[in-house]
């Protein structure tokens, strides 16, 4: 039939573009497609990885001819193309998308249509990058909290960016869940009690205090903004997983996940 190794159709291109925007903190992304759906991965500084998962069910039509299809693409260009008819079209109208990829060395083709106007895009693809393997599996999770995103949005928007790190404390005892920054202005702590209405799940087995480069975590604010819930997990080495549950306009659920390495050069002196 079709000469394409990947072919997908989507009634509303915004379902894809808004998720991709949640991981858009670097120009380049690696796309990985299997029969289950599409994963778009962005990395920075060998320390942070963001993944947007778009399950096959989100698409009206999703066909992969090989076991998996991988290519690297300029994410900024892809986003400009996906939103060629604007980021917020009139109510009742939406941009339909057909996306095709012929295989290694070929461009990604996009056919977008809105109100009878058709746009055809050919975006060059590149050799996929070797991706980081965080080896973060649920069996190794030490502490886990699920919060309503509302409770974290403001906190992240107001993070003291003069602080180099964001320190996360998770503990079965007080302060339970604490976010701290140590900036020019002094320190700031944000404490969430375990019985707060924002807290959906609280499974903390041991007290852990880890620091993460604030500049690396800041981009996750984009995912946080779209999400309704966020799951915060750490493993024994202090690796952090932030999982954002995002509900699109049609009520479908997608996930964006950020992994972050702990900041290695912790100086104990500043604990307070």
């Amino acid at each position: 039939g079709e000469p394409y190794v990947l072919a997908a159709s989507l009634d509303n291109a915004r379902h894809l573009s808004s998720l991709l925007r949640a991981v858009h903190f670097q120009d380049h992304a690696t796309c990985f497609a299997t029969a289950n759906g599409l994963r778009v991965t962005v990395e920075d500084a060998k320390c942070i990885q963001a993944n947007a998962f778009i399950q096959a069910e989100i698409f009206q039509d999703f066909a992969v001819q090989e076991e998996s299809v991988t290519f690297r693409i300029n994410l900024s260009v892809l986003l400009d193309c996906l939103t060629i008819f604007g980021t917020s079209s009139l109510p009742g109208t939406s941009t339909a998308l057909r996306m095709c990829y012929r295989g290694y060395g070929y461009p990604l083709m996009l056919f977008l249509e809105e109100g009878g106007v058709v746009t055809v895009c050919k975006i060059n693809t590149q050799e996929p990058d070797q991706l980081l393997d965080f080896d973060f599996c649920s069996t190794k999770v030490v502490n886990k909290i699920i919060l309503q995103s509302d409770g974290l949005r403001e906190a992240f928007a107001e993070l003291d960016m003069t602080s180099e790190v964001l320190q996360i404390t998770m503990s079965p005892d007080k302060p339970y869940f604490r976010l701290s920054t140590f900036g020019n202005a002094g320190s700031a702590h944000l404490d969430y009690p375990r019985d707060s209405d924002l807290m959906e799940t609280f499974h903390c087995n041991q007290t852990q205090t880890n620091r993460y480069k604030i500049s690396l975590l800041k981009p996750s604010t984009k995912a946080l903004a779209l999400s309704c819930k966020v799951s915060i997990r750490t493993d024994a080495q202090g690796f952090l997983s932030l999982q954002y549950m995002i509900r699109n306009e049609d009520g479908q659920i997608c996930f964006v996940e950020y992994y972050c390495c702990p900041d290695e050069d912790i100086t104990e002196a500043e604990f307070m």
């Binding site: 300029n74 260009v77 193309c81 060629i84 106007v117 746009t119 055809v120 895009c121 050919k122 060059n124």
Partner: peptide, 12 residues
């Protein structure tokens, strides 16, 4: 461009 080509078609 080197990266991408885009054409939008309007008719009627």
């Amino acid at each position: 461009t080197d990266l991408v080509s885009v054409t939008t078609h309007f008719k009627d």
